[in-house]
């Protein structure tokens, strides 16, 4: 369980995250949605200790993220941000192997190697595993980074817009993989998503943010409604139920 209590974060005079409190239960896929600048990424960064908060506390399984040693937390929680630029020249396999660092501190065991190979297989990266990151397309690189985080094998996996740069096929495959990670391996996957229909189809819970606050929170049935979408995004959407999943049409 991740408990967020009265978190605020400001840049200069602007309050980006405004006194947010929320409890995220363990297990399942949780999607964070909201308009640009609503504070989703900032909230995710604070939960994962990448950014210090101006006020408030975050605990993961009872551990305060600001005071718990980084390497202890790195075995329980992993985070992937949006832009991942690297100057070091790494192959895909090298990058994924870094995911085992919290467990093996740079000395890969046979077990670690097994993790690496399995993740490469799951993400269909076998063909590019030996290639250098700067020789890959944006989508391949994105999948390599997600692979690294999955290789870390933590109970909580936080991903900031993981579908960036992915084509339709790989986006669907990725969401299915997150679903499977949550269902079969009892992980908690927390995603920032821009596509509300992906959020609707694959999440157990959706958290909608607006102006640095949490506006709505609940299962997809409660969040994917014309009222909520107008309130959060400022657009009118028709909601259609297809095969039991609620889809928002907002293209008109």
């Amino acid at each position: 369980m991740i408990e967020v209590r009265n978190i605020s974060r400001s840049y200069g005079d602007t309050l980006v995250v405004d006194n947010v409190s929320i409890t995220l239960p363990a297990g399942g896929v949780i999607s964070l949605i909201g308009a640009n600048g609503a504070g989703k990424s900032t909230l995710l960064s604070i939960i994962s200790r990448l950014l210090p908060m101006s006020a408030g506390t975050v605990t993961v399984e009872g551990m305060d993220v600001m005071t718990t040693p980084g390497d202890v937390l790195a075995r329980r929680l992993s985070i992937l941000r949006q832009d991942n630029q690297m100057t070091a020249r790494l192959t895909v396999r090298d990058l994924i192997a870094f995911g085992r660092y919290p467990h093996s501190k740079g000395r890969l065991t046979v077990e670690d190697q097994g993790y690496v190979e399995r993740v490469i297989r799951y993400l269909e990266l076998e063909a590019v595993a030996h290639r250098f990151l700067d020789e890959l397309s944006g989508g391949q690189r994105q999948r390599a980074f997600i692979a690294m985080v999955l290789c870390q094998d933590t109970e909580y996996i936080l991903l900031d817009e993981p579908l960036n740069n992915l084509d339709v096929k790989h986006a669907v495959a990725m969401m299915k993989l997150f679903r499977r990670t949550a269902d079969e391996f009892r992980k908690t996957v927390i995603l920032v998503l821009h596509d509300i229909n992906f959020a609707s189809c694959y999440s157990d819970r959706i958290v909608a943010m607006r102006n640095g606050r949490i506006a709505y929170e609940g299962p997809p049935e409660e969040i994917i409604t014309p009222h909520v979408i107008r309130d959060v995004y400022g657009v009118d959407a028709d909601i259609h139920e297809i095969d039991g999943k609620r889809m928002a049409l907002y293209f008109r």
Binding site: L50, R81, N84, A88
Partner: peptide
């Protein structure tokens, strides 16, 4: 510290994610 240096080369956020006190 060579293993830590390898991780630091990944950048601040990746290093923190991997548990290095950046």
């Amino acid at each position: 510290k060579t293993a830590v240096l390898d991780v630091l080369a990944l950048g601040r956020e990746a290093a923190i994610n991997l548990g290095v006190d950046h």
